[in-house]
């Protein structure tokens, strides 16, 4: 029995090691490319012939607005994380704890709305934002507004989590004279740390990858770009030859805060997503 388990474990270790290599390989590639000193285009070897910091120096130099783009994205991500979490909590609480007319219909409609191909409506959203003056130079608040405005539909996981908190707690609190608002603030929220962190984390990560709609909204104004819009130009258009290593360096810089945050909060992320997905 012990022998069989040992063999089994050895196989598992082997699989895990192979998987780790496969999973880490692209990141190692990215890191190595970002330190490549010679010629900036694509190459077909992994290890640079010359290690150097030139690509990072370029990003922080005056000839690139990378810092501006990075700050833009960071601002968007922080605000979206904060406001979106707030809205998701509100919606989830209302749908999980309160019973009102039209609740089921609302949930069904929201479920269905998410299935309409989103980019078809981008041009429409662009004009709504333009009317508010939130395009071009105002792209940052504009993008925050759009992300936050529709975030109510992403309540599934959070509501699922709230559903697992026994309702008897609420009833007891109501008997003690607590209002609904007090129950949410004093009882549900403290019990829901994992799901709140999960929601905020997911919201924080999304803006880093928005390249299509964000480029609509910035409409050619470099000051309104986020990192994804700016950096995908480096690989997709002919105007930026030899920017591949810079792209990798920028990618690493983008990945760092998200990765660190993710590592630190992983425990909550797991608890949140597990607790929430019980009910979807």
């Amino acid at each position: 029995m012990a022998r069989r388990r040992k063999i089994g474990n050895a196989i598992v270790y082997l699989i895990l090691i192979v998987m780790s290599i496969v999973w880490l390989f692209p990141f190692i590639g990215l890191v190595l490319q970002s330190f490549r000193g010679e010629y900036g285009g694509m190459v077909n070897y992994l290890v640079p012939k010359e290690f150097s910091l030139v690509n990072y120096q370029f990003l922080f130099s005056d000839s690139s607005k990378f810092i501006r783009w990075y700050t833009n994205t960071l601002i968007i991500a922080l605000f979206v994380a904060l406001l979106q979490t707030l809205i998701v909590i509100c919606v989830s609480y209302a749908l999980s704890r309160m019973r009102f007319k039209g609740r089921k219909a609302l949930m069904n409609i929201w479920l269905v709305l998410g299935m309409f191909p989103g980019f078809l409506t981008m041009i429409c959203l662009y004009y709504l934002l333009k009317q508010l003056g939130l395009t071009e130079a105002g792209a940052v608040p504009g993008l925050i507004l759009i992300s936050v405005a529709s975030s109510g539909m992403g309540y599934y996981v959070c509501k699922g989590y709230f559903d697992t908190i026994p309702k008897s707690l609420d009833e007891a609190a109501i008997l003690d004279g607590a209002t609904r608002a007090q129950i949410l603030v004093k009882m549900i929220i403290p019990l829901s740390k994992p799901i709140i962190i999960y929601t905020a984390l997911v919201a924080f990560m999304a803006p880093w990858c928005d390249y299509i709609f964000a480029s609509y909204v910035a409409f050619g104004n470099e000051n309104g770009y986020n990192v994804a819009v700016a950096m995908t130009r480096w690989v997709w258009t002919n105007d930026y030859q030899g920017y591949f290593t810079r792209f990798c360096a920028g990618g690493i810089l983008v990945a760092i805060p998200v990765t660190i945050l993710f590592m630190c909060l992983q425990k909550y992320y797991v608890e949140g997503v597990t607790g929430g997905s019980v009910k979807g």
């Binding site: 900036g40 285009g41 694509m42 190459v43 077909n44 002919n238 930026y240 030859q241 030899g242 920017y243 591949f244």
Partner: peptide, 8 residues
């Protein structure tokens, strides 16, 4: 036909 993407 883009040198930036040609590796070899």
């Amino acid at each position: 036909s883009s040198i930036g993407n040609a590796t070899n």
